[in-house]
Computed example of a mutant assay.
Amino acid sequence: MFLEMPAFFCAGEPSGDLYAGLFIRELKKQFPDARILGVGNGQMRDSGAEIIFEYTRLMSLGLKDSVMSACHNYSAYRNIARWLCRLRPRVFVAIAYPGMNLLLCRYAKKIGVRVYYLMPPQIWAWGKFRKFFVRKWVDSVVSVFPFEAEFYRGLGIETIEIENPLVSKLSVYKRNDHHKRIGFMPGSRPSHVRRNMPVVLELTDLVYGHIADVECCLIAYDSRQANDFKKDVKDGVRVVHENRYQVMKNCDLLVIGSGTASLEAALLGVPQVFFNRPSFLDFHILRRFVRISEYNLANIYFGKKVVPSYVGYGRARLVNSICEVITNTVKLEKNKPYGTRGSPMFTKEVQ
């Protein structure tokens, strides 16, 4: 598949960087001398890729953020397109971030580069019209989700299904610290964090005020985000980013505002509650175009509701709903690991 090098990978946000890094590591095992370069951040860099452009100023999500960042994303698109033209890689691999990556797929195809799309557009959720762009500009879709691979094949699009690399990566973690702890993960994109952080800060105050002998910690994606978190949190709330998966595993409960982090927590077997606080425009306008009723990636992946999830624009309602789950869950027995897809996360389902 990737015998012809060099290969250019393009990840526009943290979850794409994560999967790209895992994918490149496996690729490097088979082809140690392969030259891989592209757009990404720490995970891709650590896997051995040459980073020519960092995505940190991209990462828009939703209607409002996409409109606000359109000019910058177009500038980034032109910059990356110039690199593609200059380097002329044999393979272009787009990872997530379809707002810009679909256009880059179009350009790569135009200059004769073979195009793969890892973590393709979620047209099973919304924007099904994008299937025409994928069919025209992408040679093969690469999916880590069985339901997604089946969906794309049903559209007549060439699809390669691979095992989700997170499954094997996370299976090695065991809990090694049984102090009562609640972890908070407000998201990876700056716009997500801005909306979710007020909910997290209010929840940490409530937890310290009503639950004895519990530690609250904010789990950051990287050191840059950790430094941003430290500016907002009060004394007593620990901010961590190193050895992130072990910290997650050592929690009694995780309060999560990111889809990929929710799936990671599910694969780790850690109880969690998921919440999402979209922008006003997304909540009242964009959701009318969404074709699915379930927003949590772990629930979609396992095919059943294993994670309580709350989506809403109002902060007070989200805080009240999450508080109820915290009260019921923080007293549960030790974490029970997942067996296969469909295994329950909670000893008692929370409505």
Rank of each mutant, 00 (worst) to 15 (best):
L263M: 02
I52V: 13
I24K: 06
L206I: 11
W126C: 05
P89Y: 01
G12K: 03
W83G: 05
M44I: 13
G99W: 14
A265P: 10
S143D: 09
M248R: 02
H210R: 14
M185K: 12
T56D: 13
F280I: 14
R224T: 12
P6F: 00
S66A: 12
A220F: 14
K304C: 08
C71A: 13
K29L: 15
R106F: 02
D177T: 04
S168Y: 10
K64V: 15
P121C: 07
D177G: 01
S258W: 10
G259N: 12
F92I: 11
I51S: 03
G38M: 13
T56Y: 13
E13D: 10
F92D: 06
F92P: 08
N196L: 05
Q246Y: 02
K304V: 05
K249T: 01
R78D: 11
H178S: 10
F132M: 12
M59R: 11
K249G: 06
F23M: 07
E294L: 02
K180W: 09
L218W: 07
E333H: 11
T260F: 06
I51N: 01
P32D: 04
V307F: 04
N299H: 03
I219Q: 08
R288H: 15
N164G: 02
Y55Q: 14
R82T: 15
T159V: 01
A261F: 11
A49R: 04
V325D: 05
L297K: 04
A70Q: 09
L102N: 12
A149C: 02
L61I: 15
M44L: 15
I162K: 04
E50S: 01
I211E: 07
S293T: 09
G303M: 05
F23I: 10
